[in-house]
Simulated scan of single mutants.
Amino acid sequence: MKVFISADIEGTAGIAHWDEAERTHADWAEFRALMTAEVVAACEGARAAGASEVVIKDAHDSGRNLILDRLPDYVRIVRGWSGHPDAMMFGLDAGFAAAIYTGYHSKAGSEANPLAHTSNLRISRLILNGEVASEFTVNALCAAGYGVPSVFLAGDAQMCAEARAMVPGLATVETLEGAGRASTSLSPAWSRRLIREGVAAALSGDFAAALPARAERYEVVIEFNNPTDAYRAGWYPGAYAHGPRAVAFAHADFAEILRALVFLKV
């Protein structure tokens, strides 16, 4: 059994400030270690459930956050950004049994995490088929395009609730809950234990149906903080204005939505 992990940091237990997520700040060293430890816990849970190989996409910011020497010997790691439309899911294919998500966070416009955002801080909201979407929304649909179920997510409480609502049977660990600029969190050790146990249980059950509903057609709308970003994005072939600070793109194939997002959200 091959398992894919998409690892972010803003939903890691204990996190509360952007300084802790930015590699140029001294606080990042502590939180890259905590991010790594949660990923290792997920790997251990997958191994306990029978995984022969785990592929991890380091999916935060530079894509160079995880401390490599702490990863188990049955792991392959995807670092940096290729430019491929799969983005945070790059490295996934139809040969994987399941996708797992660690360190995930609430969407842009949410107050459920002090670090809530979608893709970057220039985007005020990303809307998919009329619903405000998170990075998980996009990534779970990406996985579903390969026929890969999304079985487990660790992250803030609102992200967990939305992921469970989107994907039947998905298991979660709620690492923290935001309130304004503060967060109330599990201890890192507690979070790691729950992740290890949760992943093992999720992968030991029947998770084949853990797939989001697919639509016949998709429309993605990106609302930017600055109208000049919308103007630039509007030059992508097939994109169209959707208000004073927004641009949209529609297609029946979600893979084309992913391709468009590479250029629209830059």
Rank of each mutant, 00 (worst) to 15 (best):
L176K: 15
N120W: 01
R245M: 08
S191A: 15
M166H: 00
T175R: 10
L141A: 03
L170R: 02
A144I: 05
V138K: 05
E216Q: 07
G178V: 03
G198W: 13
P244N: 14
A213D: 10
E197H: 14
A171Q: 10
C160K: 08
M166G: 00
A248F: 01
V247Q: 01
A154F: 15
T184K: 09
V247D: 06
A140Y: 00
P149Y: 00
A213K: 11
E162N: 06
L194P: 07
V167M: 00
W190D: 15
L141I: 06
H251M: 04
L203W: 12
V167K: 01
G198C: 13
E219G: 00
T137M: 00
G147D: 14
W190A: 14
A210K: 04
S204I: 07
G169S: 07
R181S: 15
L176E: 09
V167G: 06
A215E: 04
F249Q: 03
H251V: 02
I222M: 06
A157N: 10
S187C: 12
A165P: 08
R125V: 06
D206T: 13
P188C: 08
A200I: 02
P244S: 14
S124H: 07
G147S: 12
Y236L: 05
S134M: 11
G147H: 12
A230G: 14
R181Q: 12
A201T: 13
V138T: 11
A210N: 04
A189Q: 14
A200F: 09
A200T: 04
A165L: 03
S124Y: 06
R164E: 10
H242E: 15
P188V: 11
V221H: 03
A165W: 02
I195T: 12
A144R: 06
V220N: 01
G155E: 12
E219P: 01
F136N: 03
E219K: 07
A182S: 14
G145C: 08
F249T: 03
E174G: 10
S124M: 07
E177P: 05
A210M: 10
L141V: 07
A210W: 06
E197R: 15
M159S: 13
H251W: 05
G198R: 12
I127L: 01
A154L: 11
A154W: 13
I222R: 00
H251Q: 03
A201H: 06
S187T: 13
Y231E: 15
Y218A: 00
N226L: 11
A165M: 04
N129L: 02
R192W: 11
V138S: 00
R196G: 13
T137L: 05
A143I: 09
N225F: 12
P237W: 13
A248P: 01
G243I: 01
E216H: 09
A163K: 07
T137K: 00
S150N: 02
A163C: 09
R232A: 12
L186C: 15
L211R: 05
A239D: 08
A201Y: 10
T137S: 06
A239C: 08
